[in-house]
Write a protein that binds this DNA or RNA. Structure first.
Length: 749
DNA sequence: ATACATACC
DNA sequence: TACTGGTATGTAT
């Protein structure tokens, strides 16, 4: 084979195997040396062989694409260019620079937590994970090329002194909760992306912040006294964890809160965005002794890129002007953009595209070579556009569990493992009170080849037996297909999806508690009508919770009346706590009328915000409803309260904007809470009614929950889930009759 | 609806 | 010795 070809292939493959210097902390290391070690350590392994295979598949895709490109005529290109420009103009018109979006990201999160809790590790290269796989590494280790998603044994080759600490998820979760409490102070509707990362919309906070007194912007250091002045300065700039020269070997064991620093040990933060974000990061560091980085930008896509810019322990603000955005985008590597991964990068590179400006220059071509969703995304990226509305965390769509193990070839062992996975999955499903219709089995053989096999049932299931009945069938089929060769597995997984609550919808938020219980639609006969679940109670209950919970996506705060767009009950609780403390502060020196005017002010502000939010959200939903019109429709209801705000805010356009269901004369309002038609054309009156309705409902429902306080955690509320597992479902008969394989029977119970 | 691939942390 | 696990989404059939 010709030299040139061989070498380009190798280089291409490197992009798959080799280290990504994409991430922070990788500057000025010996790339070639590192890559050589990685390749040498991997070479010849099954994993490596499979990666080679996959890389060749990508190469084929690229070849196909290049052929397609060669067939494109000037005329096609011109037409495409016109089309692209049309879309681009529309996108440009929708550009919204009015929001302030922040992306926060903890620095080397897991590693930083472990270092904090074990000072021994502070000056050593370390990583969190196992010999098989690392989750993250500290900055020390990154100098050696050790990074997340790298197997530990390779990392050890790169850095023999590397210390590998096992994962301790409970600890990370606890820290995560701490930082989320702080996030909620800046945006109660923040969206967590993972334990250590979140998007926040700072716009509302900043508006309020302008009127805050200094005292509200003053925050204290957690440590005091024994530190010298220089040490204090250092602590301001350096992470106590990420850098070895941080002051004081181990901080005095004071609680993260409640310890007042003496006068002087505080900092007053300004009212600008940068100050607000700096303040948030400061509070995170004081509370957790861990540092965070942040990006500030007019949309989510940009904010995410920005948060990487001054990592670790830094922040970067991209000004909200079109010019600044386009400047920023210009030389930005496409790979930095969320959603463009290894493969997309490689395909784009093949077209000579490596930066976002290239992307913009090649849009006509891209529109002919990629799917509509793909090129639309590329176009948005090239214009520096992204979402300006942070959606609440969506309900989960699937739940799965999978495990990697030493080769497993015996049928009985595979079946018992499968059952084990189903047990784990069923347990998790119970915790969230979910039921799903589609069961998917995932298999990975010792050659790293992955297969998935799915089956959709007429009814949603959740119990071990139900899930296993399906998973086992799928597994058996695979075993049979392979026989007489055994399946030589290295991984098995079971996933369940198509949750009943998402599909069988009655789009009416009738009961908030119903939602809080997170009861889901239930279809009490199991898979193939094998056995009937006993008990009417169960059915009634399930039915009730169906109508109760379907499609509710916001919770209404009983204190401030505002809709809190979250399904995270911790967030909701935090919001209520805040409201209660605000209210008590405010009513301390005032009377009821005082409170009323406060809330009026609040409402006005809220309504203005609602208009903007709604506008942005509409865009998001239009996209969705294209794909799934039903979902788009169902969201009409949940928006109706806000829609009213919109109408109220802008009376003149109200009738033209909002298609009214009846009455050509004028708007007739139906209360989204009580479902009764309100005989009024006065929006203020109608809004007042809705507020009352919402409030009454919440209070009523909360009051009815006599048991165990107001426990908002669905997991802990056993009212519905508890019953579900009590009926000891008899072992299914179908299962027993399954047939020839005797060894299988023992796995059925 | 199913299978597979890509992406993110 | 050893290359994860959980979730979402896009693409093709």
């Amino acid at each position: 084979m010709e030299n040139g070809v061989a070498s380009t292939k190798e280089e291409g493959f490197l992009s798959r195997m080799a280290l990504n210097d994409n991430k922070a902390g990788m500057e000025g290391l010996d790339r070639d040396k590192i890559n050589k070690i990685i390749m040498e350590t991997s070479k010849g392994s099954k994993f490596y062989e499979n990666e080679l295979k996959r890389d060749q598949q990508v190469n084929q895709r690229i070849t196909k694409m290049m052929l397609q490109k060669a067939r494109i005529t000037e005329q096609q290109l011109k037409k495409a260019q016109a089309q692209v420009e049309k879309v681009a103009t529309a996108l440009e018109k929708s550009r919204d620079l009015s929001r302030v979006i922040v992306h926060v990201d903890m620095d080397a999160f897991y590693a930083a937590v472990e270092m904090r809790d074990c000072p021994e590790l502070k000056d050593k290269p370390m990583a969190v994970g196992s010999m098989s796989m690392l989750s993250t590494s500290n900055y020390h280790a990154r100098k050696y090329g050790v990074r997340a998603a790298m197997p530990g044994f390779i990392a050890k080759k790169l850095c023999p002194s590397l210390v590998i600490v096992p994962l301790n998820f409970d600890k990370y979760r606890a820290v995560s909760n701490e930082i989320r409490e702080i996030f909620a102070d800046y945006d109660p509707n923040f969206q967590p992306l993972s334990l250590d990362e979140a998007y926040l919309d700072f716009t509302d906070h900043l508006e309020q912040r302008q009127h805050w007194p200094e005292s509200a912007r003053t925050h204290h250091f957690r440590k005091k006294a024994e530190l010298s002045q220089e040490a204090m300065t250092e602590i301001r700039e350096l992470s106590p964890v990420l850098f070895e020269d941080s002051p004081g070997s181990s901080p005095s064991p004071v609680g993260p809160e409640g310890v007042r620093a003496p006068a002087g040990d505080f900092e007053v933060f300004g009212t600008s965005v940068e100050e607000a974000v700096r303040e948030m990061r400061f509070r995170i560091e004081q509370k957790t002794m861990l540092t965070a980085s942040a990006g500030i930008a007019p949309n989510m896509m940009l904010a995410k890129v920005c948060s990487d810019k001054n990592k670790p322990n830094g922040q970067y603000r991209l000004p909200s002007t079109r010019e600044a955005v386009m400047d920023f985008i210009h030389n930005l590597p496409v790979r930095k953009v969320c959603g463009i991964g290894k493969v997309s990068e490689k395909m784009l590179n093949a077209l000579g595209i490596s930066t976002c400006s290239h992307l913009g220059q090649q849009m006509a071509l891209l529109s002919l070579l990629f799917s509509e969703t793909a090129w639309h995304h590329f176009l948005e990226v090239s214009l520096g556009l992204g979402s300006t509305y942070i959606p609440r965390h969506e309900e989960r769509k699937s739940m799965s569990t999978e495990r990697t193990f030493k080769e497993l070839s015996k049928v009985e062992e595979q079946l018992s493992l499968c059952r084990e996975l189903c047990e784990d999955l069923a347990e998790d499903m119970k915790k969230e009170g979910l039921k799903g219709k589609t069961v998917t089995l995932k298999l990975k053989n010792v050659n790293f080849e992955v297969k998935t096999r799915a089956m959709t049932l007429p009814c949603a299931v959740a119990t071990v037996d139900e899930i296993f009945a399906v998973a086992k069938d799928l597994l058996k089929t695979e075993i049979e297909n392979e026989s007489p060769q055994p399946l030589r597995l290295r991984l098995m997984g079971v996933r369940i999806s198509a949750f009943a609550s998402l599909d069988d919808k009655k789009p009416l938020q009738k009961s908030i508690i119903g939602f809080l219980q997170s009861g889901k639609t239930d279809c009490s006969s199991s898979s193939q009508g094998m056995h009937q679940k006993p008990g009417n109670e169960l059915q009634l209950e399930a039915h009730a919770s169906t109508s109760a919970c379907a499609e509710s996506e916001t919770l209404t705060c009983p204190v401030c009346f505002r809709k809190v767009e979250t399904t995270d009950l911790n967030v909701f609780n935090t919001h209520i706590d805040q409201c209660l403390s605000n209210a008590s502060q405010k009513t301390n020196n005032g009377t009821e009328s005082d409170t009323e005017s406060e809330s009026d002010l609040k409402k006005d502000r809220e309504e203005r915000a609602a208009v903007n939010k709604l506008r942005r959200r509409h865009e998001a939903q239009e996209k969705k409803s294209k794909v799934n019109p039903q979902k788009g429709q169902s969201s009409v209801k949940k928006d109706s309260v806000q829609k009213v705000s919109l109408i109220k805010d802008d009376n003149k356009t109200a009738t033209s904007q909002e298609p009214q269901p009846s009455n050509s004369k004028g708007p007739v309002f139906v209360c989204p809470v009580c479902q009764l038609t309100q005989e009024t054309h006065d929006l203020a009156v109608f809004n007042h009614h809705v507020d009352l309705c919402l409030n009454q409902e919440v209070l009523h429902e909360l009051g009815r929950q006599t048991s165990s306080s107001i426990n908002l955690s669905p997991a802990k509320n056993s009212k519905s889930t508890g019953k579900r597992d009590t009926p000891s479902s008899p072992p299914s008969k179908k299962v027993k009759s399954l047939g020839p394989c005797n060894t299988i029977d023992k796995f059925f119970r």
